[in-house]
Design a binder for these strands. Structure first.
Ligand SMILES: [Zn+2]
Length: 398
DNA sequence: CGTGTTTGACCAGCGC
DNA sequence: GCGCTGGTCAAACACG
């Protein structure tokens, strides 16, 4: 599941969903070298086989490229539809602002800044007419955040599996979102996991674009952006916990604007669910804890293989301007409050209300289900990072 | 040579 | 206004 490889013979795990061109090159190289043993010169048949194999791989590669193009075209069409329909819906201000910003940007305005603003990075959007180029600045950010959900319609976000089928629908109330947009930036989802390896695998491809030493933490924070599709606005941060360096904190922000592999879907659905819940609340500094009722529960529309996941808990902190959902997968709920994130603070000591106050538009079960799916995905994937780290095994510099 | 990482610089927001 | 901090950029570099 969750793979694009038409040949189907790829030795990749599901995390190798949709390998980019360079990855395909790598695969090719691996396979050819596997055939080119030391006795290669003695074996003419091997050469013939090699050539055949190479041809086959090239063909596969070509197919995948075409598929990628097809997907991008489809995405473009969908985005276009969404944008046009939304603007008809009277959300004119947002897009008017966007258009204005676009034109300014074309005139050489400031570069895009800030993780929280993150629309598409400027350099990635220049030749994509269908992208909503979110140039920045705070009061515009919120509008950008709402316009960013590419598969959003009036009812919510539709997530897609690898073949573009609709898989998960997350409901949004546009009125609530608009209300929240005035004060909130895009929600984040933080995941605490215990791992001594790399950033948790979530099925996506990430490119590192920065690293910083965060205050109060000897371990640097790494910044990644999704590279599965050019222009995907999703960013993530990766940081080890200052107290316990076996604990890693991965923070996601934004929604993918492309079909996702199953493992990524669980993350995306949780992000969306969190976003929905967070944005539906109007009062800052609210907290809700969701305990996953049954980690083995499989959301009906996904096919993630679930593993037992004891006592996972998600903590929602809707404190502006960074509404954050925190999922603690370290199996030690007591650790939760140690999270160094500024948003968490004293919220955590409150008793868990059944749901976020402020009339959430989403059934909490939806969120819990998404959470469960993601939890299992993380547990399944941990240690199989999709981040390209062909060099340093531990990118802890600066 | 194309792609991804590293890393110093830059910028904006925020608190004082 | 100034300094601190977080987030991002982009040139330089490494790798396959
Ligand atoms: Zn993405």
């Amino acid at each position: 599941m969750g793979e694009f490889s038409p040949g189907g013979s790829a030795p990749n795990t599901s995390f190798e969903f949709f390998p980019k061109v360079p990855s395909a090159k790598t695969d090719l190289g691996l396979l050819t070298t596997a055939n080119s043993g030391s006795d290669r010169s003695n074996n003419v048949d091997n050469d013939v086989d090699e050539i055949k194999e190479e041809k086959r791989l090239k063909l596969e590669h070509q197919n995948m490229k075409e598929r990628l193009n097809d997907l991008e075209m489809r995405l473009a069409r969908i985005e276009y539809k969404v944008m046009s329909s939304t603007s008809v819906m009277g959300k004119t201000d947002e897009f008017a602002i966007q258009e204005e910003m676009d034109s300014k940007k074309n005139m050489g305005m400031k570069k895009q800044r800030q993780f929280m603003d993150s629309g598409q990075p400027s350099y990635q959007t220049t030749n994509q007419s269908y992208n909503n180029n979110n140039s920045n600045r705070s009061h515009v950010d919120t509008a950008a955040a709402s316009a960013e959900h590419p598969f959003k319609n009036n009812d919510g976000i539709v997530l897609h599996d690898a073949r573009g089928n609709s898989v998960t629908t997350v409901t949004f109330s546009s009125s609530n979102m608009v209300a929240a947009e005035g004060t909130m930036r895009k929600p984040r989802v933080s995941v605490r996991t215990r791992s001594n390896a790399y950033p948790i695998s979530d099925g996506c491809q990430w490119r590192k674009y920065g690293q910083k030493k965060a205050k109060g933490n000897p371990c640097p924070r790494s910044y990644y952006r999704c590279t599965m599709v050019k222009g995907c606005p999703v960013h993530k941060q990766f940081q080890r916990c200052a107290d316990d360096q076996t604990v890693v904190i991965t923070t996601y922000e934004g929604n993918h604007n492309h079909p996702l592999p199953t493992t990524a879907l669980s993350m995306a659905s949780m992000t969306s669910a969190a976003a929905s819940n967070l944005l539906s609340g109007s009062t800052p500094s609210m907290t809700a804890n969701y305990e996953i009722p049954n980690p083995n529960f499989i959301p009906p529309t996904t096919t993630t293989t679930l593993m037992p996941c004891p006592s996972s808990m998600a903590t929602i902190s809707a404190s502006a301007p960074f509404p954050t959902v925190m999922l603690d997968l370290t199996h030690s709920p007591a650790n939760q409050s140690r999270f160094s994130g500024s948003q968490m603070s004293s919220d955590l000591v409150e008793p868990p209300p059944p749901r976020v106050a402020g009339s959430p538009v989403m059934d909490p079960n939806v969120f819990a289900n998404a959470l469960a799916a993601f939890t299992s995905a993380v547990n399944n994937c941990d240690g199989n990072s999709k981040v390209k780290d062909n060099k340093s095994s531990s990118s802890n510099n600066q």
